[in-house]
Amino acid sequence: MSTMRIPNVLALKAENIIKKFGNFTAVNNVSLSVKKGEAIALLGPNGAGKTTFVEMVEGIQKPTAGHIEILGLTWEKQAKEIQHRIGLVLQENRFLDRVTVFETLKLFTSFYNVPSAKAEYALKKVNLVSKRDDYTMNLSGGQRQRLAIALALLNDPELLLLDEPTTGLDPHARREVWNIIKELKKSGTAIVLTTHYMEEAEKLCDKIYIMFQGKILLSGTMKELLASQEYQSIVDLHFKGQLKKSFQHPAVIRQKKFPGGIRFYAKELKEILPPLMEWIKKNQIKIEDLNCRNLNLDDLFTELTGHKLNEQNRKEA
């Protein structure tokens, strides 16, 4: 198998990808690119089309329309070479029951045609040496996820596809997985990560693609995404009773009422807070709660879709 690496080729180039299941369009005209060494996140709730998109990149599903290039190669022409050069962590990682962690890794070294010693290397890399001879069925969720990552590392992939690698993990296990991903990113591996945790996308990725109902709504670096909105700060005021007079000030870009309160959007907190406090005092408003924050991805997502990022996931949970 030829593994000649061509410099300056995009790790991933997806153009106008469409995936339909009957009349349902799961992925609708998605285009994106990932440079070598770059990490991107596909952020969106369950059912946004993230996994379907990633599975098309992984070669598990075929797009209805569009073109995918991985490291300058296509699934139609160079499937085996792509498989040899990418690493993947599927959304659901299951392993053969009565097989040990090491045996599982050794099996995959034969698939990737790498020395068995790579199994030991991967074990160390994901900190699973102590579980080397345990059956995979006896691993915890976090350990299973780390094993899945270890499998993805056996071939030193140039592009790593991680489909919700921390979903269902406790905070400690999640942080462990994050550390591994951070290290991989440092070593120059291009990463495509799907997640519905904004913190994960923010901490691990250079660029974020916000996906909803099969479409990419917005993309860019964290800074670019936040800067795309004219406001940067949000103040939620919860109060008792009725407002006699509304708060009008040049710092307020817009305001929105919600049951029991009102939300103010402003450029900066320091511009809105002093006049707002004065207005509250003057109008003798009985405050129940006052929540001030800088704009975050969750707010942005809500603004774009009318839904909270984790709303659907919570419902499903």
């Binding site: 198998m1 498989q83 599927l90 659901e92 299951r94 392993f95 698939f111």
Partner: peptide, 13 residues
């Protein structure tokens, strides 16, 4: 059924 084939078949096996 247990989705064990998925990961293997996505490798160059």
């Amino acid at each position: 059924m247990k989705k064990l084939l998925r990961r293997m078949s996505a490798s160059p096996m």
